[in-house]
C-alpha cells in the first residue's frame, strides 16, 4: 500500500504543480482583464471630461454673448432716434461714440466677433477721405422706406438724391438691450 502511495507521489506533485500554474495563469488573465477594463474606463472618463469641457465652453460663450448684447445699450428706442444719435455723434466728431451705434459683429468665426472694430475702422477711414460731412448730409435726408421691414426687428430708411435712390439704411433691433442699432448704409 505504502509502495503504491510512493509511486503516486510524482503524479500528485505534478497535479499540485499544474494547479499552481492554473491559479497563476487564471489570476494573470483576470488581472490583465481588469487592467484593460481600467484603461477603457479611464479612456471613457477622459472622453467624457473632454466632452463636458467642450459643452461648458460653448455654454460660457453663449451666455457671454447674451451679456455683451445686453450691455450694448447705445441706441434709441426707435430707429429714427438711433439715426439722430448717430448723426449727432458724427457732428461732434466723436467717431468712437458713433461706432457704438452699430451692431456687434455676430459671425462666430470672425476675428472681430462681438466687437464694433470694423465700424470704427470704417468711420476713421471716411474721416481720412473727408466723407463724414457727406454721411451726415446723406443720413439727415433719410426717410422711412415704404417697404422696409421684412420681419420684426428690422427697419429700413432710404435716402434719395433728387428722385434717385442712393442708399438704403438698415437698422436692427437688439432685443437684449431693447435699442435699435445701425446695420448698414
Amino acid at each position: 500500500m505504502e509502495q503504491k502511495l510512493e509511486n503516486l507521489k510524482p503524479s500528485l506533485n505534478k497535479i499540485k504543480k499544474s494547479k499552481k500554474v492554473f491559479v497563476v495563469v487564471a489570476f494573470a488573465i483576470i488581472a490583465l482583464g481588469f487592467f484593460i477594463w481600467l484603461i477603457l474606463l479611464n479612456l471613457k472618463f477622459n472622453n467624457q471630461v473632454k466632452f463636458e469641457e467642450k459643452y461648458a465652453k460653448a455654454r460660457k460663450s453663449l451666455s457671454g454673448f447674451e451679456k455683451i448684447m445686453r450691455d450694448d445699450v447705445y441706441g434709441g428706442k426707435t430707429p429714427q432716434e438711433t439715426l439722430d444719435l448717430f448723426i449727432a455723434a458724427l457732428k461732434k466728431d466723436d467717431l468712437e461714440l458713433a461706432s457704438e451705434y452699430f451692431l456687434l459683429e455676430t459671425n462666430l468665426e470672425d476675428k472681430n466677433y462681438l466687437t464694433k472694430n470694423k465700424a470704427l475702422a470704417a468711420l476713421l477711414d471716411f474721416k481720412k477721405q473727408n466723407k463724414i460731412q457727406y454721411i451726415i448730409d446723406l443720413l439727415s435726408r433719410a426717410v422711412p422706406a415704404s417697404t422696409s421691414s421684412l420681419y420684426e426687428g428690422d427697419y429700413n430708411f432710404v435716402a434719395y438724391d433728387g428722385k434717385m435712390l442712393v442708399s438704403e439704411i438698415n437698422l436692427e433691433f437688439n432685443k437684449y438691450s431693447q435699442v435699435w442699432k445701425i446695420q448698414s448704409f
Binding site: E105, F126, L138, Q183, F185
Partner: peptide, 17 residues
Amino acid sequence: PQKALGVSFDNEDFLKD
C-alpha cells in the same frame, strides 16, 4: 444692396429681400 458708401459689416443685405 443699394448702399451709398458700402458701410455694411455683414452680408445680411445680400439676402434681406
